[in-house]
């Protein structure tokens, strides 16, 4: 039994969540109240809509993350075969690393790593 048994986990979790929600729906009391379905905002009716244009401060971080995450994926194959490729691979990955670290240092220097 290997990879294919993951389907069991998928189905099991679906059954767990779905079953519990259906069961709960069946046994839980229901009552309608206009205030109940209001979104919670500390007891005060919401002003405006919730899905407004929202100013997130981590736009630059997100781009950096994308770059670094892809690079991490590149590092994994090297890490697995590191002992085989030896020093040559080490030097190559060192160059790769230097570029990465340089990129991070540059972003740091340019104050890209500051939340606005």
């Amino acid at each position: 039994m290997n990879g294919e048994s993951l389907i069991v986990f998928f189905i099991t979790s679906l059954v767990l969540v779905g079953g519990a929600i259906v069961f709960s729906n069946y046994i839980a009391p229901k009552s309608f109240n206009k205030q109940k379905i209001e979104p919670y905002e500390c007891g005060i009716p919401t002003t405006g809509i919730s899905w407004l244009q929202f100013n997130v401060g981590y736009y630059l971080f997100a781009i950096l993350f994308l770059i670094f995450d892809v690079e991490t994926v590149f590092l994994f194959p090297w890490a697995v075969v590191m002992k085989q490729v030896g020093l040559v691979g080490m030097i190559e990955i060192l160059i790769f690393f230097v570029i990465l670290v340089f990129g991070l240092a540059y972003a740091w220097k340019k104050h890209a790593l500051v939340w606005e």
Partner: peptide, 22 residues
């Protein structure tokens, strides 16, 4: 918690709202 009512918030994105616990 099983006996608690499942409240569906007004104007929530129903599909995603129910999908998230899954």
């Amino acid at each position: 918690l099983l006996f608690k009512e499942l409240i569906h918030i007004k104007k929530a994105d129903k599909i995603l709202f129910n999908l998230a616990p899954f």
